[in-house]
Design a binder for these strands. Sequence first.
RNA 1: GCCCACGUAGUUCAGCAGGAUAGAACGUCACCCUCCUAAGGUGAAUGUCAGGGGUUCGAAUCCCUUCGUGGGCACCA
Length: 593
Amino acid sequence: MLKEQINEAVAGAIKEFLPEHAQNLMIEKPKNPEHGDFAANVSPLARYAKMPPPKIAENIVKYINIDNVETSIISGFINFRAKTPKLNSCIEKIITEGENFGRNNLGNSEKVLLEYVSANPTGPLHIGHGRWAATGSALANLLEFSGYDVYQEFYVNDAGNQMNNLFESFLIRIYEVNGYGLTIPEGENSKKKYYPGEYLIDLARKFSRELPDKFKQILYYFNVPEYHKEIGAYIIAGSDYVSRRKQPELMALWDELLEYAYTEILKQQKELLNRLGVNFDGWFSEKQLYERDEVNKSIEKLKESGKIYEKDGALWFKSGDYGDDQDRVIVKQDGTYTYLTADIAYHYDKIARGFERLINIWGADHHGYVARVKASIEALGKDSSSLEVLLGQMVNLIVSGEQVRMGKRTKMITLRELLDEVGVDGTRYWMIMRDINTTLDFDVDLAKSCSDENPVYYAQYAHARACSILRTAISERFDRETGEVLPPLMESLDFEVNFDSLWQEDSSPTRNLILRLESFEDAVLTAARCRAPYMIARYIQDLAKDFHHFYTFTRVLNVEENVMKARIRLVQATKQVLKNAFDILGVSAPERM
RNA sequence: GCCCACGUAGUUCAGCAGGAUAGAACGUCACCCUCCUAAGGUGAAUGUCAGGGGUUCGAAUCCCUUCGUGGGCACCA
């Protein structure tokens, strides 16, 4: 990689010139392209070298010798300019490496567990989940491309209070669709306890259709008498059946109903994620943590660390000792566990499974949890820096120029609806293309428009255009005047190239394009380091721009044969790099549009 | 009140391990298709980098502070 090469050469030169103050300088791209392709600013060395920057630059340049790279000095800057043989070799490298071009070994096969989405199995995925899903799967690709061994996991919260709420809501809906006149109560309080979404009505219908006998059992065991109708759902959800819950038959039925509901919902979530091109390696069940007694085991481990104490009838974890604002409850007064307890057990399990690095994508609303979980890892005697939590900000949906408030009162727009509207490529690209630290304005109309205002189409069009040129090169042609069929310009795209013919005239669009292609390796490396797939989307935009620019200024076909061959090669290289970049994002690179 | 993120052109955003004249897309205006996809390109206009301090040769970038926006501060998940 050119930048890397220059960086090493400069560092080596500084070692010769200023052995006692050797350091790396930043290699950057000059804003003014006339200065060169890369530049190093020597000013930081001024205080040690005790001479003016231009003098320092002169001294350093003496020790720099990179094949086919020119150096020049302007005041305190050393500028580097790649000569044509260097650029030619870049094209060859891309063609040779093909789909592997851009890979690096940053990860050094480190085993990474990437956890993302992890929605509750209590309802449809919403827009926010779509952002984590798209970004997470792109990050997984990016990390794999950078030498990490990535395992993608979805944590299924199939235990805890929300499961009771789901059960109760589902039960009410079953009564409702069977004509018992019950329904989910309205009001703010109700929203905390019930899932009012229509999807449970559909699910209750499906249930009643598939398992008609079950409803008879429900009537028997839950025994909602006629007079309860008026009082409504509160009776069902209240003490009436809770006291009877101890009956084994009732419990079995309870579990059966609940399992039916959440496995159906989970199935729908999985299907939708699949459709989005998101493929998890594992689905980790919270419930299983309890069944395998992992939660208790992790409490024992915490006890061993001496960071557990009892207060007010509850068991506390001294997370405050590890930088959390305050200590946290692990076992509640009533003997049940908090959400955190299971989460700690989950993270212990990840470590026990041999993952060296844990990366979680969480919504920003979970940011309070970061310190707690990190604390629990510290208590285990591990370095909590192995856990990286990426906090993602919200998604604002823009429809017809108006922001659709995602508040509690308005109807929730689901990911499925968005996907139906915008399509997979548009949804993924838009979800990924912004820094996860900023709130995302998702303009639905723009995202689904097939116009130049839409960055997805701009970029995909560049790929289609490259494909079109290559296709035309080997296709039969018609003579415009005579209508005669002419043979293809090229028999095949497999030929020897002399790249010197690329450089016969002013060719700055060509230079820029090649330098951009070359910088893909650097872009991947930086994006992987920052865990930031959006940087790849940005790279794609830049590359597409350079290619469109090249296209309008440089004819590829129907020029002198050697020139044509060299330019075809360059188009092939562009197509390859675009494809590799799109593959990381999981967005398709269409052959034609 | 405390914690996190954000504030850059009319709009959406890059740039932020300090460095040369602050960039792009969209929108606006003026142009470019005999010929590889005009879903493209060229040119022009557009800025108190939220405000104020500080650090230094140099700050959009680092530090402090004020203001604004969003999110979070449970023995809920």
